[in-house]
Design a protein around this nucleic acid. Structure first.
Lengths: 322, 322
DNA sequence: CCGGACTATAGCCGTATGGGCATGGCAGTG
DNA sequence: CACTGCCATGCCCATACGGCTATAGTCCGG
């Protein structure tokens, strides 16, 4: 395998630098100057390469040296090798500063509608060459991917069960609200909007095993109510919204998803116990890549902004004239 | 200029080989085996590169090592650098053996119709990747180009004036014959085909300054005849042939050009004094490039073949029943 | 809990490397 | 003819390079 004459250790990168310098300067003396060494060293270095290749690279002339038939192509190769190395160096540096690279982020519904898109947008305007990969999945799938190293981080509702080797960071609270379509009878109805009254309508429930589902069930249990009899379990956000606007279904949605949608109205029904944190989850042991760190920074920024927004909404809801 | 961390002399090609070996083997121990060195050397070498780059290239795991985010791209770069070097090596070797490269050959009419094309064809079937450049020109132009190094060699009628620093090599004799078109009156005429009788027709003469022209003039002088009154001087072979087949013109042509052409018939008029050698001219000082040497070899081969052909024709012409 | 498979660290060593200086030779040029 | 650029050669020297051995540390599987 190491049968190449060139790669058996005798040829050094120095030699390539030397060759290109000679080619650039046209003279051994000037090449020596440009490399801050003495001329005999250049002569010897050139000799070494030529002996190694068994070929004369430069023709010696009274006014300097000129590439031979072999020299020309070889010089070009040398240049391209050096350029490649410089590029490799540059690449590493860019990756170090997070200007180049890939960050793979997992998400599951909560946080993915506002927090993540905003953070990605901000990240991209900072570092356009950064690649962001977003993968959707259920929380436990995503945790697997995090642990196996296929994901840099996940954004979403923080789970109460803290898996070892993963750490969570809260970014903002995103309250859950019950919603129904804009023209839904409940908005004008006389039966009120108590949880019990809403049991008469069909519901969309979060699919089992999600944190939100568990919380929602806890609410019903806490109020001593049965789960709605007529319910659909749905993971697809698109399907969910379609059902929501075209039928009389009731759903529990993260507040910011509901707020953003004109065809959907939030019900005043209190769900005080459901107020869980949205944040990022990332592996505890290994440090995030620079790219991941950059995204994380923007997630924190946008998270803080959303937290401020939430406080506004909270006070607005508390006000009597709403 | 030498500000690159990578190229300041600390990074060695060894390191690149090392990195790729590690990537290939997946284990420092196996990499060490494949390089026929001991494992600590590999560990240290890897450390050196990582320190140099300020980045971890491989993640150490209990069962071996795995490329990090930085490692992957860098390994690819390293591979491509090494591949480039191998290619450079290969290229030089191919050029050395004449399998790759360029040979530039000059030619002026004689020899260019059979000898050169055949030699080129033979060369190409040997070394398909060899580039052959053919330049046409007058003998003195070509000699200039030979001396300046723009030509590797020329093929053509050997000139009697031997320029210093150039040497000639005879390949075959190519006799000159007088020719006329197939239906030309001279073939059936009663006035014979003596040179004197031919003076009545128009002629095409080689352009001044060529060896052939001088020789032709010498023939007329020797026989005590004036030059034909009606004559055209022509360098273009295409034009010449066109005139030859469409008019009653007489021309002097190298035998093998005439032999090859069905529309043209050779006149039996003897031109004994015109029988000059065709051969190659090449610079005396510098050795021919491998590519040029390869072409030269084929020129000699084809030259010998043509010389044999010439002997056949000569005996055929001498025979009484012709 | 031990053994096996890796990697990491430390210390050692000969020699090739990469540099310098001085000098010589050679081909144009004034 | 002497001068001026260049390149080539020879000799010298410190050091870093590229190996080695021995050993320790860590994780996993049985």
């Amino acid at each position: 395998m190491v049968t190449d004459r060139l790669l058996d250790g005798r040829l050094k990168l120095r030699h390539l630098v030397l060759i290109t310098a000679i080619a650039d300067e046209g003279t051994l003396v000037r090449a020596a100057e440009s490399l801050h060494i003495t001329q005999p060293v250049v002569t010897r270095g050139l000799r070494e390469v030529e002996d190694l290749l068994g070929v004369q690279l430069f023709e010696r002339m009274p006014r300097g040296v000129a590439p031979t038939q072999y020299g020309g192509p070889f010089i070009e190769r040398a240049r391209s090798v050096l350029a490649e190395l410089r590029a490799a160096d540059e690449e590493v540096r860019l990756m170090q500063t997070g200007q180049l690279g890939t960050v793979t982020v997992g998400t599951h519904l909560a946080g993915s509608n506002l927090l993540l898109p905003r953070a990605i947008a901000a990240l991209k305007s900072d570092h356009p060459r950064l690649t962001v990969v977003v993968r959707e999945g259920t929380p436990d799938t995503l945790q697997q991917l995090l642990l196996s190293g296929d994901l840099d981080l996940t954004v979403g509702r923080l789970s109460p069960t803290v898996p070892v080797r993963l750490e969570q960071e809260r970014l903002h609270h995103e309250p859950i609200r019950l919603v129904a379509r804009a023209g839904h009878p409940v908005h004008t109805g006389t039966r009120g909007t108590s949880l019990a009254a809403l049991l008469a309508f069909p519901w969309i429930f979060p699919v089992a095993q999600t944190a939100l589902r568990a919380e929602l069930e806890a609410v019903f249990f806490h109020e001593g109510l049965p789960l709605p009899a007529d319910r659909v379990e749905c993971t697809s956000m698109l399907t969910l919204r379609s059902l929501l606007v075209s039928t009389d279904v009731i759903a529990a949605l993260p507040m910011f998803i509901a707020v953003d949608d004109r065809d959907v109205k939030i019900l005043p029904t209190p769900l005080s116990s459901i107020r869980r944190s949205v944040g990022v989850t990332l592996p505890k042991d290994r440090a995030p890549s620079p790219a991941a760190a950059a995204l994380l920074m923007h997630l924190r920024e946008e998270g803080a902004r959303l937290a401020a927004l939430e406080r506004e909404y909270a006070t607005a809801e508390a006000a009597p004239f709403h």
